[in-house]
Simulated scan of single mutants.
Amino acid sequence: MNVLFLMIISPEIKRNPNLYTELMEEFREKGHKVYVAAIEEKKNGRQTRITEESGIKILHIRTGNMFNVNPIEKGLTTLSLGRLFKKGLKQYFKHIKFDLVMMPTPPITFADAMNFIKKRDNAKAYLILRDIFPQNARDIGLLKNEILFKYFRNKEKKMYRVADYIGCMSQGNIDYVLKHNPEVQGNKLELLPNWSRVETPIETEGSVDYKKKYGLEGKFVCIFGGNIGWPQELEFLLELAKSVRDRADIIFLIVGKGITKPKIEKIIADEAINNVIMKDFLPKEDYDGLVNQCDVGLINLDRRFTIPNIPSKTTGYFKASVPVLASVDASTDYGKVLENARAGLWSITGDLEQYKRNLLELADNPDRAKQMGINGRKYLEKYLTVKDAYNTVIKHFK
């Protein structure tokens, strides 16, 4: 089959693999021809062009700026994506007949491009639902304009209409979509949990001690890696850090960038929270190695969410056999996922007492914490591999 992925970020297949690049490679390895259309932000200074990496053709479509910009600029770019992607696909992929077009969310405005390919090529459309917008933006105060909300809500509904199949992260996602969109046919929706490529863990003598390299030797390290933005409410993580200041052995390491990072850094400085370390960036090899040697992987979600989020970084923690400490909203079924895997502890964002109890349970019971990490790895190997994701999608074409 000819398979097209519509992507919000240009894939770096070898340098910066993620769940989508892994799925692209899985399709390629199974003999399919894989193509990608992806955003090329104008701030990068490059025009629309085609590149090829690992046998996958990538169409980089010049758009407005999307990341680390104010909400207005981000919104205007989002509104333009359907039009710009249709134009790019018409011009650069006009001689290719696609059998399957796959579209992860965000953003929902790719739906017009997905519908264009579906109609032009009589292709099937598979929606990888990772983000329920615009409700998630309304929940955390980023979308207050009712007219805009209704506009994006109509786009969301169109996206569900266009999709032949909708892969959801959890049962909570399926239930939410059906409850709030009763016109959607239930047989369109299926479980497609976040996935990861699983390699055999390699332990070698003389391997790098990343804790020592980054000055964390002898510490119980809780790591958060990824976007530092409104959805994470890392202010509450700082409350946890302050509550265990008396524990000199516990350190919180936050690695990443995002729109709220300056605010988090200011709180740390103003309140002298000396058990939190922030880093902009680590080389991928160092970050992956450090996660493997850390003691806890952190998951944080804003308490205001009414939609069920399942953070994708969870599979990275499972892969590294690291137990999870989660602080999540009351609407998500993430806690059930964690309990099913027996891979960590969770509490509701805002419940500092339980959050602290969970942290100390992991810190003071290393054998239990280690077993939770092992459980996460086993759960990943059994249910959450890229092969599982591929088989979920491809069964519709057998």
Rank of each mutant, 00 (worst) to 15 (best):
F67D: 00
G297V: 02
R120A: 08
I58W: 01
L384P: 00
A113R: 09
E183N: 15
I132M: 13
M102Y: 03
N2W: 11
T105K: 01
I140Y: 02
D112L: 10
H32N: 14
S243I: 02
K284D: 13
R368W: 09
T392H: 11
E41W: 04
H396K: 08
R247V: 01
I96R: 13
K94Q: 13
N18L: 06
L127M: 10
N194T: 07
E361S: 11
V221P: 13
P107H: 08
E205H: 10
S54Y: 04
A241N: 11
L234V: 13
E183Q: 15
R62H: 10
S170E: 03
N391H: 05
V291H: 03
F85E: 00
F397I: 00
V69P: 07
V177P: 10
F27M: 07
F224Y: 15
D99L: 05
N274V: 08
N65E: 05
Q293H: 06
R28V: 03
T306E: 13
V177A: 11
I13F: 07
L79I: 08
V322L: 15
L345G: 02
G256M: 06
N181M: 07
D286L: 07
T77A: 04
E73M: 04
R130A: 09
A125P: 06
D333F: 09
N70P: 01
N274W: 06
I254P: 01
Q47I: 00
N115Y: 07
Q354A: 15
D270K: 15
N300H: 09
E233P: 00
S331C: 08
P106M: 04
M24I: 00
I13S: 05
K284I: 05
R62D: 12
I228H: 01
S80F: 01
K157F: 12
Y287G: 00
K395Q: 12
P182E: 10
P134K: 04
K266I: 00
I72R: 15
L384N: 11
I166H: 03
F85N: 08
P323L: 13
Q293D: 03
W195N: 03
R304C: 04
R28W: 06
L148W: 14
E271L: 09
N18G: 11
R368D: 08
T392W: 03
G215E: 05
G297I: 02
N18I: 04
I374M: 14
E265D: 15
Y390H: 07
V386Q: 02
L282D: 09
S196Y: 12
R303V: 03
Q47N: 14
A163Q: 08
G289F: 04
F149M: 07
Q135C: 02
A111R: 00
E22Q: 14
D131L: 09
V255S: 00
T200G: 00
A341Y: 13
R83K: 10
F318M: 14
V184K: 14
L189P: 02
S321Y: 06
D249L: 06
M103G: 02
A38H: 03
E52D: 11
I348H: 09
Y92S: 05
F236I: 06
E233K: 15
L142Q: 15
R49H: 14
P366G: 12
